[in-house]
């Protein structure tokens, strides 16, 4: 079992909902990210997504876009993200997945990257501009190294596509809460919950809901049918506009709210 699979097993055994935190690598500066991740773990994050900054992040709203531009200015690269993973691994076994866009991945080379990622201690990749149809070669490269390539479903994913996705999905399935891009807003989770119920019939892979979740109440609502919730923009906003302390306070609040509602 991988670190990611272990974590979901552990959550299941304890009856808890998972909390996945996204942090753009390289903000507020390149040196700060590893420390932020370790603090996030202390504050209650189960899994961390490290954002690989890209110049043209088409699935992201303004908060993560701006964080990406800032991170690029700060000199963050894909190699830099792997360096952060190595740094974190000196003191933590928290599951780490890198989230970024295909061009940076292609540019590095699938084989070379998956090897380097495993060596650094990364557990997988989330690439929002690689839908199921285009995932083949990257999936193979990841599998060779025991890495997960996380797949997506959305409220609009057809039954046929859900079926196809379930045949290859591993790690967890990223369930996008709403049609749109990342960023906090009020969401009706009934559509994605229906998709999750559909996924459950065909797959035992854990489901994590993301996009738009910015508060403890929203996290509790989003977690109803899911195994975990993903919070990105709200955390990145605190890091970018306030400070690490504010971000960690939010993560603690999210953790507490989830555990109060769903904990044993």
């Amino acid at each position: 079992m991988t670190r990611l699979e272990n974590k979901f097993q552990e959550l299941k055994n304890s009856g808890k909902k998972g909390l996945i935190i996204y942090i753009t690598a390289g903000i507020p500066n390149a040196a700060a990210t590893a420390k932020l991740v370790l603090e996030a773990e202390q504050a209650g994050a189960d899994i961390v997504e490290l954002g690989i900054p890209f110049s043209d992040p088409m699935a992201d709203g303004p908060i993560i876009q701006n964080a990406s531009y800032q991170a690029i200015k700060n000199g963050m690269t894909l190699s830099g993200v792997l360096e952060i993973v190595r740094e974190i691994r000196k003191s933590s076994q928290i599951p780490l997945v890198a989230m970024g866009y295909i061009n940076n991945i292609l540019n590095f080379g699938f084989e070379k990257l998956s090897g380097a990622a495993r060596e650094a201690g990364l557990d997988g990749f989330i690439i929002p501009d690689v839908p199921h149809e285009e995932s083949g070669d990257l999936k193979v490269a990841c599998q060779k190294q025991g890495l997960h390539l996380i797949e997506f479903v959305t409220p609009g994913t057809t039954d046929e596509r859900i079926g196809e996705t379930c045949t290859t999905a591993d790690g967890f399935i990223y369930c996008v809460s709403i049609n749109g891009v990342t960023g906090v807003r009020k969401i009706d989770y009934s559509a994605i919950n229906q998709v999750i119920r559909h996924v459950r019939q065909q797959s035992a892979v854990p489901c994590a809901v993301g996009f738009g979740i910015g508060s403890p109440d929203a996290a509790v609502a989003a977690a109803a049918e899911a195994d975990a919730v993903i919070v990105g923009s709200a955390v990145v906003k605190e890091i970018a506009e306030n400070n690490a302390g504010a971000a960690m306070a939010l993560i603690s609040d999210l953790r507490r709210a989830l555990d109060d509602k769903y904990g044993r």
Partner: peptide, 13 residues
């Protein structure tokens, strides 16, 4: 070529 877009856009494509 190909279709390197978020899953959200796939059904409409």
């Amino acid at each position: 070529g190909g279709q390197y877009v978020p899953e959200i856009v796939m059904p409409v494509l």
